[in-house]
Design a protein around this nucleic acid. Sequence first.
DNA 1: CTGTTAGCGCTTTCAC
DNA 2: GTGAAAGCGCTAACAG
Lengths: 331, 331
Amino acid sequence: MPTIKDVAKRAGVAVSTASYALSGSSKIKGATREKVLLAAKELNYRKNGLAMDLKKSKTKTIALILSDLSGPFYSELIRGVQELALEKEYDLIVCGSHGDESSTAAKFLRETRTDGVILLAHNIKSEFIRESAREGFPIIVLDRHLSGDPNIISINVNNRKGGYHATDYLIQSGKKSVGLISGPSNSADSQDRVAGYKEALEAHGITPLSKWIINGKFTQEGGYQATKMLIHQGDMPEAVFYANDEMAIGGLEALKEHNIRVPEDISIIGFDDIQLTPYLAPPLTTMRQPKYEIGKLAAHIIFQVLEGDQVNEHYTFDTELIKRESVRIGK
Amino acid sequence: MPTIKDVAKRAGVAVSTASYALSGSSKIKGATREKVLLAAKELNYRKNGLAMDLKKSKTKTIALILSDLSGPFYSELIRGVQELALEKEYDLIVCGSHGDESSTAAKFLRETRTDGVILLAHNIKSEFIRESAREGFPIIVLDRHLSGDPNIISINVNNRKGGYHATDYLIQSGKKSVGLISGPSNSADSQDRVAGYKEALEAHGITPLSKWIINGKFTQEGGYQATKMLIHQGDMPEAVFYANDEMAIGGLEALKEHNIRVPEDISIIGFDDIQLTPYLAPPLTTMRQPKYEIGKLAAHIIFQVLEGDQVNEHYTFDTELIKRESVRIGK
DNA sequence: CTGTTAGCGCTTTCAC
DNA sequence: GTGAAAGCGCTAACAG
């Protein structure tokens, strides 16, 4: 590969001249400028972006780290981040955290490769995130609440309140019993939703029954399995709150297999409001997370930190009940 | 930020020693090794990955460039690429081509930042891709057929055949008339599907009617608008072939608004088989693109090129008809 | 305007 | 084993 040196030589100028000309500086005028550009073209020259970033000690890039690149959850979030990045003329790259501490994610967290990162990857340990924190490298975490390090900022959704709201809505709609399919117990998000669920039950004088609280993985398969268990147990609640939409989809499947109709026989509610939620049969009632807004804020904060502004250590969003057709009103 | 130099100094060794120790070389044994590691920890040292890549002239990273990071189309594709990358211990980053030639995508194509790229971004001009090609930098294009440059490899789906198959299926199912909602005319994919559609019609002695061929953008909104137009035109065909699933979703919406039932009143078929396709009401019959396989092959080829193997310039996959419930059998 | 030059932070010969 | 030093490709003083 030809370097800028080669270009300079061929154009018969100094490297600095070539550099200026190539980056469109007004320092270099007509004739010389053309010469350089021509030489670059003739040599099929490509700038080495790595060298540039190294030299400038600045990448103008932020990374969004997702636990599952192929998940259905993120598109709105990405859009939020992307929009702001574009506006600031920053680049956004997204990478996955598959493989834990040996993953691409780990590399981008630990090493200097971008100017900041936004993290939504439950499989990365908090410990690891803390270790990766350093001055001038903002880390925004979206799926937990991490405090104590000024370079780590958390943006969360009020999961407890959301869980409460979802459960309360089910009860207000006339359901006497509501089950819960929760996420994995190592997920802070899930734990908070469970807490909200229990609170709502108790607020209505209902005692949470452990037989109606089943936990599984935050996936379609997890929801399917958990629902199967619930069904085989024999005694079904009148409604069930799924700790996320993906699980609810799996639940819908299991329910369908057993000819249990939604919402005629059982009402269900999800959490997240992922993209495909309105297309389900029936369209799923769910607690919407303002993902676009979260993404936008996350990016916004990164830029603030990068520009030396003061920011809070923690931000919270509320969820919003999106009523669709999976909850039947009245017993 | 402390550098490896600082670490070396603090540990009282030479930089080279620090470098070896830090990267776990067996050259450095017990005592010194510990000293270095300790110093690194005390200084909260982070390796600068950019410097390393520059020095090594190798990034061990491939980029997947997508026109729309938040689109629903890609998850299977990503999974395919990701899996193979993981296996080869390469990192995968994905970025968007929003903003054309000024985008992140352009930067990753034009500059040396990764060892290769996989491209599925119709908004990047072929001209630009050609210009970005260079020795030792494999570019795999997934949405068009580019020939003539040994560093550009195309992987395509047989769109013509797929379009033919879709249309033929509709006709075989008893439909006497089939409309087409196509994608933008600058999309090679769309053009080929249109060609297949016309061929199928003609093979059955049906003359393609331009009033029944409407083109729009490859989005839900595009499909919605195009379908509205078709409806307002007054004379509806018995079936319509949407050039992609997203458009079909928009079409479903428009149809529903006008109380036209699918498949009772009209049959529809899509193209792609995106993730949410089975959840639609009704589940959408569509031509599946083997996205996972394509992703896997794309990654495979990149590694082959990188390892100096000989590869073809062009690969083709066939689509597969996935029968669901949006096409009614019999008139 | 243009050329010379000093690094950005790292790896890797090569000599000891 | 360990250290000195070259250099990956680029930018940005600085001097002319």
